[in-house]
C-alpha cells in the first residue's frame, strides 16, 4: 500500500503550524460569531417590530447578503476599500467585518423568526395573570425565544466556521493555507501528502464542529415542545 502522506506532519513544526492555522480560523469565527449574535439580536428585535421602514431596510440588507457570495464580499472589503477609500485594512479585520456583516443578517432573521413564532396568546395569558410588560418578556417570551434560537444559532456558527476557509483568498494563513504550504514544500519527498494532510484538516474541522452540532441537537430535543 502507498503511504498516506501523514508523515510530513511530523517533520519540523508542521503540525504546530497547522494548529496555529486552525487557531486563526477559529479566532475569526469566534469574534465574528460574537459580533453577529449581539448585533443580530438587536436587528431581530427591530425586524419583529412594527416599523415598516426599518423592516424594509433590513429586508434589503438581508437579501443582499444572501445573494452575494462571501468571497465577493471579502474581495470588496479587502481589496475594494483600499483602492476607493484608501483604507488599509488588515486581512483579519476585513475577514471579521465580512463574516460579522453576513452573520448579523442571518442571526437577525433567526431572532425575528423566533420572536414572531411565539403565539400572541402567550402575551395575553401572561398579562391576564397581572404581569407587567417587563415580566411578560422576562418570564414568558424571552425563555421561549432563546429555546427556539439556540439550536438555530449554533447551526449558523458552524456555517461561519466552515466558511472561514475562504479567508486564505485574501492572504490569511489559516489552516487550509498552511496545509497547502506543507504539501507544496514536500511535493518531491512525500507526493501523497495531499491526501494525508487534507484528511487531517478535515478531521480538525470535524473535531471543532461536531460537538457544536451535537450540542444543538441535544438542546433541540430537550426543549422540543
Amino acid at each position: 500500500m502507498q503511504s498516506l502522506g501523514i508523515d510530513v506532519l511530523f517533520k519540523g513544526k508542521n503540525f504546530a503550524r497547522l494548529l496555529e492555522g486552525l487557531w486563526v480560523a477559529a479566532r475569526v469565527s469566534l469574534i465574528s460569531s460574537a459580533v453577529s449574535i449581539l448585533l443580530g439580536i438587536f436587528m431581530g428585535i427591530l425586524m419583529a417590530g412594527k416599523n415598516r421602514i426599518i423592516q424594509g431596510i433590513f429586508r434589503v440588507y438581508l437579501e443582499t447578503v444572501r445573494i452575494m457570495p462571501q468571497m465577493v464580499l471579502l474581495f470588496i472589503v479587502y481589496f475594494g476599500t483600499t483602492r476607493v477609500f484608501g483604507w488599509n485594512l488588515s486581512a483579519e479585520y476585513a475577514a471579521v467585518i465580512v463574516f460579522s456583516f453576513w452573520g448579523t443578517a442571518e442571526m437577525g432573521d433567526l431572532v425575528r423568526g423566533a420572536l414572531i413564532s411565539i403565539p400572541k396568546i402567550q402575551y395575553d395569558s401572561a398579562r391576564a395573570l397581572g404581569m407587567d410588560e417587563k415580566s411578560v418578556f422576562q418570564y414568558v417570551i424571552l425563555p421561549q425565544t432563546v429555546r427556539r434560537l439556540i439550536p438555530l444559532s449554533i447551526n449558523l456558527i458552524t456555517r461561519i466556521i466552515k466558511t472561514t476557509s475562504l479567508i486564505m483568498m485574501i492572504g490569511m494563513v489559516e489552516v487550509l493555507k498552511v496545509a497547502q504550504q506543507i504539501i507544496e514544500a514536500n511535493r518531491r519527498t512525500s507526493p501523497n501528502a495531499a491526501f494525508g494532510v487534507f484528511a487531517v484538516v478535515f478531521l480538525m474541522y470535524f473535531i471543532v464542529c461536531w460537538p457544536i452540532g451535537r450540542a444543538a441537537a441535544y438542546l433541540e430535543k430537550r426543549w422540543a415542545e
Binding site: I121, R127, A128, L129
Partner: peptide, 20 residues
C-alpha cells in the same frame, strides 16, 4: 393595569399555558 388584572382571572380557548 397589572394590579387591576390581578383581580381578574382569565382562561382562553387554548395555548395559554407556558410551554417551557
Amino acid at each position: 393595569i397589572s394590579l387591576v388584572r390581578q383581580k381578574i382571572g382569565m382562561v382562553f380557548q387554548s395555548y395559554d399555558l407556558f410551554p417551557h
